[in-house]
Design a protein around this nucleic acid. Sequence first.
DNA 1: AACGTTCGCTAACCCGATTTAGCAATGGAA
DNA 2: TTCCATTGCTAAATCGGGTTAGCGAACGTT
Lengths: 354, 354
Amino acid sequence: MSRRRVTLADVAKAAGVSRTAASLVLSGRSRELRLSQEVEQRVLRAAEELEYRPNIVSLGLRTGITRTIGFVSDTVATSRLAGDMIKGALEAARERGFMLFIGETEGDAELERLLVQAMHDRQVDGLVLASMFTRTIKVPESITAVPAVLLNALPERPTPLPAVLPDEVEAGRRAARVLLEAGHRDGIHLIGAGPDLRDPSESVAAVERLAGIREVLAAAGTRVAGAPSVPDWQPEYGHAATRELLATTRPRALICFNDRLALGAYQAFDDFGLKVPADVSVVSFDDHPIAGWMRPRLTTVALPHYELGRRAVEVLFTEIDREQPDPGRDGEVHRIPMPLRDRDSVAPPSGSPC
Amino acid sequence: MSRRRVTLADVAKAAGVSRTAASLVLSGRSRELRLSQEVEQRVLRAAEELEYRPNIVSLGLRTGITRTIGFVSDTVATSRLAGDMIKGALEAARERGFMLFIGETEGDAELERLLVQAMHDRQVDGLVLASMFTRTIKVPESITAVPAVLLNALPERPTPLPAVLPDEVEAGRRAARVLLEAGHRDGIHLIGAGPDLRDPSESVAAVERLAGIREVLAAAGTRVAGAPSVPDWQPEYGHAATRELLATTRPRALICFNDRLALGAYQAFDDFGLKVPADVSVVSFDDHPIAGWMRPRLTTVALPHYELGRRAVEVLFTEIDREQPDPGRDGEVHRIPMPLRDRDSVAPPSGSPC
DNA sequence: AACGTTCGCTAACCCGATTTAGCAATGGAA
DNA sequence: TTCCATTGCTAAATCGGGTTAGCGAACGTT
């Protein structure tokens, strides 16, 4: 709506030189091509006075580089934490002067194809294929045209694409250690480890967390006392499963596989007049915002969403920068540590074991 | 990394015609320019066989239209439902074949300037300036080059930009009506309406919600019984303010200005052994995910994030499509209805009034 | 004096599309 | 036959940059 953009031609004219000269100066190649200091100064001054900014669209056409990456995810909305993932990706991109296209597939393969296509049409320099739950995905064939990274996802079949994932096994170990260090040995129950999860997307995290938990408990000479199955990781199922548990036993500690389940568990303890952490300790995963709002505040092993997003973009940049394909790095998996948020829901066991 | 993209020139060669002819056919202008059916068919067949897709970067350079809009927000991550807002924007954009650049300013004006610049450099066709809380913002001068819409924000000083906002006043009325319809007249207290909010960004919503509440209560011949002030809309302040209230009186109904405050209020009622909704009804705003997880499930007036995002982009499209500036529509404000989520936290008053 | 170098700069082409202007062939009218 | 219209298509310019090849002048060498 205002005046026309300033182009390189304008700068060249103002400086009284050719477009070539202006281009060379502004891309820092004036030394190499031995332009005079005189010309260099004139061009720089003109560019500054006119507030010249190169048109990236034009640049993209000529060089094939658009300083743009595509972030394709299944869902940004349903998970609260997605925002942090995008934020991490955004900041890492910004540090290199890149912008992000965002696209949502809703898990629809056809939509995904169209989106990836639309991004190719805009000549993105790379793609992040993100999932909001850790899970295995089918990598669309159409992505081969450009470097890509899987975020929070593993390929169904082996691909040369690198992947960035939370270190769920270590998270499982960490959760178990929290209880061990508080002195717990017996009556440790699991909520959410059920083998028959309705939503297979949650099973990767479940399997890996469980592995870490088992490993650490075994090393300490103890084991999980029980694990009622839940169909889904929602508060109501956490509530139901915990009630079921309380009907027959008095657990000393609970490892909930996410914070929503823990919220349900809290409600069940409330029903039975049990106090956290005096009667029962609770440790969980994810660090959902509610974890800090619950009473007592929930000790949980955090999903590092911000860091995941950031690392995905950083790994993508190394792919973009790499001249030669390096078969040695094919399918490299980057595991991001899941930090413990040590709050108020764990205490030493008291009273007699059950 | 695979073969070169198919260009218009490839299609033209395959069809044995000039690039001009191919371009005309593919942009549907072959009739108008009277190309033969013969040529038309050949071009279409070639394009299909080669799976030709126009390069949007090139198109952007030539036509100035990139089918891209920039979504600049202060924060996508920290706030509640930003994801839904982006989702709405994304879908509305996709329906027109547009993609979205996402950018975060963190409320930093300089960063905002740089971002808007970076988007201009990529020739976005329009901009959405979003805020995650309803509030007034300083519109950067640099946006004048392209159509723009304010989302969830009002300009500090009058501008010709349209704005899309939740209808907070009507939301206030709606909350008040819920209580009136349940039979409440007395002992209606407010949490979060305090005049001394620490964070002014929340004040627009607060002021407007309060206006709606007052209006409806006044029309019913009653009024707010009290409104302890809170420094911030966080659970702990909701908890503290409600405890303070309970120290001196027994409210019959609470209107919390957001769901996090309501969560804190629930905890305070719990402390005092009061039951929601038997002893006290609670109605709130926002429809944060926890609203459905609380027990009893919280009745709340929802922020229509998805709809806000969608409408912002739709309004932006009408701006983009508009040939002439239309002074009549300058600064038009679109209010999006906030729907009531009628759940379980409101009941008729029982016992004697206080 | 003739010739090769170096210096300092620019003309011209390229990326992949759209669009304007115009050309060759045909048909019809004068 | 000549001239003008119409039909059917293409050459060439354009968008805003990057890049290659090469040009003229000054200088140094033999």
